[in-house]
């Protein structure tokens, strides 16, 4: 009996250890990531990568708690900035992109999208690195990226993967999203990917719908408590996000 208990305990411990996956990364590229939805917010970002896996972490560089309200006729718009740390894992072996917000209990899981990059003829130097230009349409935006073949790296900032060199600069055509590399370091870093089983899992599409619906519901609840005789209609709640579409 005693022997059996020991074995079971050991297996249980082993199971817990194996649930958290640990990855080794050899290189790290730092980015300044700008999100401009009416007000430009700087996010400090790090991309850790190896040949098979990448981990992209970003967070606003200041504590933005601003809630801006603007009045236009009878409409009111409210902007809330997400100040949490976001992490995006990509694993070629499992063909998965996993997105985790430190403020939430939701894991967004998707397959690694095949981005159809078009290489252009333009070239330019970015701080001594000879860069080629590429464009693609991804999740509702058209991105332009400058990448350097001198740095073999298939991974890009956020989810902009698939180019044969490291992306040193990328932006979309509305200038709402932009990335600028600020340094490249060799590193020997281990990072632990969170256990999927501990979170509620959703696809990108489900997540966008859930967030829209949740906010609309909360707004309706609040407005339902206004004085009788006051009629307020909630028009469509538009969420401005890096991903505008789910495909």
């Amino acid at each position: 009996m005693k022997k059996t208990l020991i074995i079971i305990n050991f297996l249980m411990v082993l199971n817990v250890i194996c649930a958290q996956e640990v990855y080794d990364f050899q290189y790290n590229i730092s980015y300044d990531m700008y999100i401009n939805f009416g007000h430009r917010v700087l996010n400090k970002a790090e991309l850790f990568y190896s040949n098979t896996t990448s981990c992209y972490v970003y967070k606003p560089s200041q504590n933005y708690t601003s809630i801006a309200g603007a009045y236009e006729d009878d409409e009111r718009s409210v902007a809330i900035c997400d100040t949490a740390t976001q992490t995006v894992w990509c694993d070629k072996a499992t063909n998965e992109i996993i997105e985790l917000s430190s403020a939430g209990d939701i894991l967004i899981i998707d397959s690694i999208p095949a981005i159809n990059w078009e290489i252009q003829d333009d070239m330019r130097d970015i701080d001594g690195f000879r860069c080629n230009k590429a464009k693609c349409k991804f999740r509702g935006r058209t991105y332009t990226a400058w990448f350097s073949l001198d740095i073999p790296c298939n991974w890009g900032p956020w989810k902009l993967h698939g180019l044969p060199g490291a992306i040193l600069e990328a932006y979309d055509d509305t200038n709402e999203i932009s990335f600028y590399a600020t340094s490249i370091h060799r590193c020997k870093i281990q990072r632990t990917k969170a256990d999927k089983n501990q979170y509620k899992q959703m696809t990108v599409k489900e997540y966008l719908h859930r967030f829209e619906g949740k906010f609309e519901e909360e707004l309706k609840r609040g407005l339902s408590k206004t004085n009788p005789g006051l009629q307020i209609q909630v028009s469509k709640v538009k969420i401005r996000s890096i991903e505008l579409e789910d495909e």
Partner: peptide, 14 residues
Amino acid sequence: SFLLDEVEIIPQLP
């Protein structure tokens, strides 16, 4: 081993 030195890049923001 990849011979890229550690570099600081000055981003060319618009």
